[in-house]
């Protein structure tokens, strides 16, 4: 398969994946922005998302704790915005997207949701910073997905 170079190819490649592979690749996107949120609940969510046969109880408790992390990190109405904190919120949202049932998200692809939140996280982290490099998270995600699809070759029928 040729490498993914734009969001059209990216989204279509994600659309073609089943739920398990979507969760796995979503977790890879989030790992790439983990430096923006050190919350252990995020890491735990990624572990569970990447695991093929997670125990349903563990899955439920992990969803609950990552949703708590999302709620704890959002900007509260009227509070002064700190974009570096907001980056953490978007990482938590991305991690939650890896696990949230589709019925909770209007049927959106978890991996696409996670990708968008990771991009917002990276952008948020640069908003208070004048010297920061321009954000290239989408390009990194194209590469992550290309590599992931490449790694699947030969492992599946």
């Amino acid at each position: 398969m040729s490498p993914i170079n734009n969001d059209w190819q990216f989204k279509h490649a994600l659309d073609d994946m089943d739920g398990y592979h979507q969760r796995q690749v979503a977790a890879l996107f989030v790992r790439n922005v983990l430096d923006l949120n050190p919350d252990p609940r995020v890491l735990k969510a990624l572990e569970v998302a990447s695991n093929y046969d997670s125990d349903p109880d563990e899955m439920n408790s992990t969803i609950k704790s990552i949703m708590q992390a999302v709620l704890e990190s959002h900007a509260r109405c009227g509070a002064a915005c700190k974009w570096s904190d907001q980056a953490g919120y978007y990482v938590a949202r991305a991690a939650a997207a890896c696990l949230t049932p589709r019925s909770f998200t209007l049927g959106k692809d978890p991996a696409w949701q996670a990708a968008l939140s990771c991009r917002m996280a990276r952008t948020s982290a640069t908003l208070d910073c004048l010297d920061c490099e321009p954000v290239t998270e989408s390009l990194k995600q194209h590469k992550i997905l290309s590599d992931y699809l490449e790694s699947l070759k030969g492992t599946e029928p």
């Binding site: 900007a75 109405c77 009227g78 509070a79 002064a80 915005c81 974009w83 908003l127």
Partner: peptide, 8 residues
């Protein structure tokens, strides 16, 4: 009210 500026 949250200090969101135009660049954001």
């Amino acid at each position: 009210p949250m200090g969101v500026r135009l660049p954001a």
